[in-house]
Structure formats: structure tokens, C-alpha cells
């Protein structure tokens, strides 16, 4: 499935908050069409990495290139318009708007406007179509309910739908499985596979390893802001330093 062509190149980025080194010298390459998992214990700097790539934080050093073009230092909306979008770990939908109206906002971005090239049909219909693809029942009341009243499973889907509305090339999923029930996760996995088949690259920050390994062909382990392993899931999880990062070391006994 991998074409071997890199879509995202992260080169030696570092970020510190005051005295805390959140990310130090992380390099990472994502190939087009891949699903790559980013794992690591709490506080390892996974979300910071997502924030750095999506432009919400500015790296202290290092360069990030997306489709060979430098994006580090650009504001988030520029990066999103170039086709790199992200989900948020904490779901905060536009709670006063109905679910489908939530998608009107990304549909008004310059990226989508350019793609539609002046053919401005009914955005509401486009929004409902996207929601149907992502698992909202078109004829039910769910897409028309205020987003603030939706259950978490739907909110995660809505967050994903917000990304898909931008017709992205790369989606950074920040813990999209967390807080979901097993059945909700199993229904979400085919959706993500469908995204991959349509040519979208996915970078998934996850704590739910078993579910992640069903999808990801490659995982990157981060601990204390440093990349400690990179490779296929089985090989990575077999490594002693990864086990130590997750379970703690034997030496203390």
C-alpha cells in the first residue's frame, strides 16, 4: 500500500516549555498512504508533536516539510489549507450549532473553495453527505441535533468528519479511540481503513495499542520527548527499551 514517497518529513525538531524539554531532536518520515502509530507513555510528548506539526506550536529548532514544502512556522490555518489536518484529543464541537452545520465551517475554508472552483452547490447537502459517509444516519435526527447534545462516539466521528470535509492528504488523529467503547472502536476501524484506501495518510497518536496495531503498519515510540523506536508493531513492542518505557524497568526490584 505504501508508495514509498514521503509526504511528511520532520527533521530534528525540538520544543521546550520553560525548563521542560517536551520534544527533543525528533525526526520522522511519513510515507504516502501509510497508517503510522505514535505511541508512548503519558507525558511523552505525543500531543506536543501533533501540535508542532499542525502549527499550533512553533518548534524551537528543526524543520517540518509537508509535500516537500516547509510548513514549520506557518499559522495553523495555512497548514490545514495545504492538506494537513488534525483532530483534537478533547472534543469541543461547535456546541450551539447542529451537527451538520459544524461542517459548514471547514467547507468554507480556502482549500475547499478552491477545489470546488466556484461550483457552489448547497453546502448543507455536502455536509450531510460527509456525515453519512462517516456513520451518521441521514434520515435519523442525529445530524440535525445540536452538537453539544451528541454522545462521545458521535463527537469523535464529527471531529473526523470535520477533517474529511477539508479533503486532506494527511490526518493527524490525536487519540481518536480514547473514551470509546469497544463496539464504537470496532465500528470506527473500517472507517479509518476506508480513508487509507482513498489515499489519505494517517498519523495516529494512540493509547489503545491492540486496536492501533490492527491498523498501523508502523509505529513510532516516544518517551520523554525522544524517539526511542520506529518500525513494525511486533518488532517495536519486542524491544526491551520500549517495554521498559511502558512497564517500568526490572532493575528497581
Amino acid at each position: 500500500m505504501t508508495s514509498g514517497e514521503s509526504i511528511l518529513d520532520v527533521e530534528n525538531i525540538s520544543k521546550s516549555f520553560g525548563g521542560v524539554q517536551a520534544i527533543s531532536n525528533v525526526s520522522l518520515t511519513l510515507n504516502k498512504g501509510d497508517i503510522v502509530g505514535i505511541i508512548g507513555p503519558n507525558g511523552a510528548g505525543k500531543t506536543t508533536l501533533v501540535n508542532l506539526i499542525s502549527g499550533f506550536l512553533r518548534p524551537d529548532t528543526g524543520v517540518i516539510r509537508f509535500k516537500k514544502r516547509r510548513i514549520s512556522g506557518q499559522p495553523p490555518h495555512r497548514i490545514a489549507n495545504s492538506g494537513l489536518v488534525r483532530t483534537f484529543q478533547v472534543m469541543r464541537p461547535y456546541h450551539s450549532l447542529p451537527a451538520y452545520k459544524n461542517l459548514i465551517i471547514p467547507l468554507n475554508s480556502t482549500r475547499v473553495k478552491k477545489m470546488r472552483a466556484g461550483k457552489l452547490g448547497d453546502l448543507d447537502a455536502v455536509a450531510i453527505d460527509i456525515l453519512e459517509d462517516i456513520g451518521f444516519e441521514r434520515d435519523a435526527r442525529v445530524p440535525y441535533k445540536a452538537a453539544g447534545t451528541l454522545p462521545l462516539g458521535y463527537l469523535k466521528r464529527l471531529e473526523l468528519a470535520r477533517c474529511i470535509a477539508l479533503k486532506p492528504d494527511l490526518i493527524l488523529c490525536d487519540e481518536i479511540f480514547s473514551g470509546l467503547s469497544m463496539s464504537e472502536i470496532t465500528s470506527l476501524i473500517p472507517l479509518l481503513e476506508k480513508l487509507q484506501m482513498s489515499g489519505i495518510t494517517l498519523m495516529m497518536v494512540e493509547h489503545r495499542l491492540r486496536e492501533l496495531f490492527k491498523l498501523a503498519g508502523r509505529v513510532v515510540v516516544i518517551n520523554f520527548g525522544e524517539k526511542i523506536a520506529d518500525g513494525p508493531p511486533e518488532a517495536v513492542m519486542a524491544r526491551d527499551d520500549v517495554k521498559a518505557a511502558y512497564m517500568g524497568t526490572e532493575k528497581t526490584k
Partner: peptide
């Protein structure tokens, strides 16, 4: 209208609007 919806979106969650490719 669309403009108003975007503005209401900014009020509810400005980070998500920025992540949606809109210059708030």
C-alpha cells in the same frame, strides 16, 4: 448564514476553526 456560522464556531472553539483552515 455561512459567515455567521463561522463566527459562532469561533466563539465556541477557535482552535478547531483554525484547524479547519480558516483564518480567525
Amino acid at each position: 448564514e455561512d459567515l455567521g456560522l463561522i463566527l459562532r464556531g469561533i466563539k465556541d472553539n477557535d482552535q478547531a476553526v483554525r484547524a479547519s483552515g480558516i483564518d480567525i
